[in-house]
Amino acid sequence: MSTVTESAVRTALEAVEDPELNRPITDLGMVKSVEVDGDAVAVEIYLTIAGCPMKSTLTDRTRAAAEGVEGVRKVTVTTDVMSDEQRRELRLKVRGATSEPVIPFAQPDSTTRVFAVASGKGGVGKSSVTVNLATSLASRGLNVGIVDADIYGHSVPRLMGSSAHPSQVDDMIIPPQSFGVKLISIGHFLDGNSPVIWRGPMLHRAIQQFLSDVFWGDLDVLLLDLPPGTGDVAISVAQLVPDAELLIVTTPQAAAAEVAERAGSIAQQTRQRIGGVIENMSWLELPDGTKMDVFGSGGGQIVADHLSEITGSPVPLMGRIPLDPDLRVGGDVGNPIVVSQPGSPAATALAGIADRLVTRKQSLAGRPLNLGVTRR
């Protein structure tokens, strides 16, 4: 006789995680029923919404877990859709009963490293640097997210090959994922290539919603791709996430370096820390192995040195990324070069910058150490 029990199957399902919420489906109330008939098992699970993009992933993981139970020979997995009340309960389990939106990255106990990637002018490859750094960090097993804060010039979905739309559970937004990175962009909510025509307050509200209404989970690193310059969004980010560190992207060109200094100098007024400077398009490697300085040389180091003087704190040059046509191609097709060609000079430089980001020590200043004191 078969010894398969419903309890054994449910125990096995505890290992199945929702790929968007990163929590066991048993904890989230997503297991509707489990029926055992001899060595055959039928499992019905709830999807958060109709047309859930993760339906096949969830059913495959559920089937694999049930098939792993000793004695099981046949598994059938079916799905149903949560009611509004069930979605509300799910949101409460994940986010808690907070009445007002809270930006988790602005809380004193947050352990997420937040980097705001900025530039003085457009066309320096800031967004390409952002997505490649994020993808490189995720490949190390870190939980990484990207906020496309460039509302007018949003490009992160295309660069990451993401055409999925965010899901919504009650008033909680579930971000799409690409290459193991969670991302959100105004581009996810627009039809086609529609322009965004907003004034400052609307930009502020959009960034606030991206940070508070999106369920990011426990991130190790969050990257914000800022628009060029020192406008409304840069100020909003400084207000909403005051501990975010600035990463300034420039090219070797003297004119670009001069403008990049302005973007970094905003840290004096916003009291943000400058994590470092990244020089992009540093040189072009020719077929004979020689290097051509297409945009001059030394701009990144000049920016780092001047910002060190202005802020009174050392601002390092994090790395120099060569001009590589394949980096551009990767962006056009939505396949970052650190994934498609990890051994290329550009990918190697980007991986080196990612290494510097994750190996920097985190200060304990201002953080509770939770150390008890025993008196005798």
Rank of each mutant, 00 (worst) to 15 (best):
L284V: 00
G366D: 08
A304P: 02
L357S: 15
T76G: 14
G125Y: 04
I248G: 06
P227H: 03
T348N: 08
L246R: 03
V233M: 02
P242M: 12
E309H: 06
E14H: 04
G299K: 10
K182H: 10
S128L: 13
I197P: 01
V338K: 10
L307T: 02
K121F: 03
P108W: 05
T26D: 15
G330F: 14
G71C: 10
K126Y: 07
L133N: 05
R328V: 11
G298M: 02
R73D: 08
L90S: 12
I173F: 05
G276C: 09
G141Q: 13
R356E: 13
I337R: 11
T111A: 03
V34Q: 05
R375Y: 11
P176D: 09
I174F: 01
D80A: 12
I353Y: 09
Q341C: 06
N335V: 15
P252M: 05
V196L: 02
G71T: 06
A40E: 15
Q86V: 08
M160Y: 07
V221N: 06
D18F: 07
Q268I: 00
Q362F: 00
V294E: 01
T112R: 03
E70Q: 09
I103F: 00
D332T: 01
L284F: 05
N370A: 15
P101H: 12
L159C: 09
P242T: 13
G145Y: 11
P287F: 03
K126D: 02
P176Q: 01
V338Y: 13
R273Q: 14
S33G: 04
L159V: 11
S185N: 04
I174A: 00
G123Q: 13
P108D: 10
A354R: 03
L21C: 08
V338E: 09
I248R: 08
L246E: 01
S265H: 10
A263Q: 02
S212F: 06
P195W: 02
E89C: 04
I310Y: 06
E285M: 09
H165N: 09
R320K: 15
R140V: 12
A50M: 14
R205G: 14
R320N: 01
G372W: 12
A12M: 00
A64Y: 04
L13H: 00
L203K: 15
L47A: 14
L203C: 07
D150T: 00
G145I: 03
V196F: 06
S340I: 15
Q272W: 09
T26Y: 15
L142E: 04
S136E: 06
I321G: 13
A134D: 12
V102F: 05
R360C: 10
A116E: 02
S265V: 10
L159F: 11
V147D: 10
M1D: 09
T111C: 04
L323R: 04
A238D: 02
E261I: 15
E17N: 15
A304Y: 07
L13P: 02
R273C: 07
M172W: 05
L284D: 01
Y152N: 15
L223R: 08
G120L: 08
A118F: 12
L284M: 03
R328K: 09
G141T: 02
P24H: 06
W216H: 03
A349V: 14
P227I: 07
L190C: 12
I174G: 00
R63L: 07
A238W: 04
